[in-house]
């Protein structure tokens, strides 16, 4: 009885957050003002964080809130306000009716493609099988431990490359963003 109630509640919350995410995403692409669009996108990211937690990825959920909703979106809002674009233009930046119809057609085609792929049967070699002898998640390792293990062992090279990428991005962003000092000299 209690188990059925929990699973019902789980399903209800899953669909609730999913619907909020879709509605927020639709509002996000239709808002004229960049600030309103950014705040709706933050809402999408919070809903996705809730879904990550429900999918047993609590650490990813926390990182989603910290990095995406907290850091990346703040950078976006900062740039919007730095360039003083908050009110949006007098006329909308939407493309004309041709562009909208083209976008709708491409979107429908993409969605149909994904749905067909989801329903079709693949040859045996192409299907993803659930890993057979996968070690059960070690509960004593907590939430972060199971992710940290592969991150610092199997994916160590990718991890180091990512840090080089971030360093390059920092240097590049500063170099592109700063005013030219050579002209003023």
């Amino acid at each position: 009885m209690g188990n059925v109630f929990v699973s019902l509640l789980y399903g209800f919350n899953f669909y609730l957050f999913g619907l909020i995410a879709i509605a927020s995403a639709l509002l996000f692409v239709t808002r004229k003002s960049p600030v309103a669009a950014a705040l709706w996108l933050v809402n999408v990211m919070f809903c996705l964080a809730a879904l990550y937690v429900m999918l047993d990825a609590q650490f990813i959920g926390a990182i989603q809130v910290l990095v995406y909703a907290g850091a990346i979106m703040v950078v976006f809002l900062f740039v919007v306000m730095l360039l003083n674009l908050g009110r949006g233009d007098a006329d909308s930046d939407m493309r004309g009716s041709v562009g909208r119809i083209a976008a709708g057609a491409v979107g429908l085609a993409l969605l149909a493609e994904v749905m067909v792929l989801a329903r079709s049967r693949f040859p045996e070699e192409l299907t993803l099988r659930a890993a057979q002898g996968l070690a059960p998640v070690d509960v004593t390792a907590g939430v972060i431990g199971p992710i940290a293990g592969p991150l610092f062992n199997e994916y160590l090279l990718a991890f180091e490359l990512t840090s080089i990428l971030l360093l390059t991005a920092i240097v590049g962003a500063v170099l592109i963003g700063k005013k030219r000092v050579t002209d003023a000299r």
Partner: peptide
Amino acid sequence: SLALSALLFTIGVIGVLTRRNAIILFM
């Protein structure tokens, strides 16, 4: 989850195709 992921991706593609504001494109 996969259906929701496909829907969100499609909404993102539609946004890229319909908007002209570069910042919204990035979002």
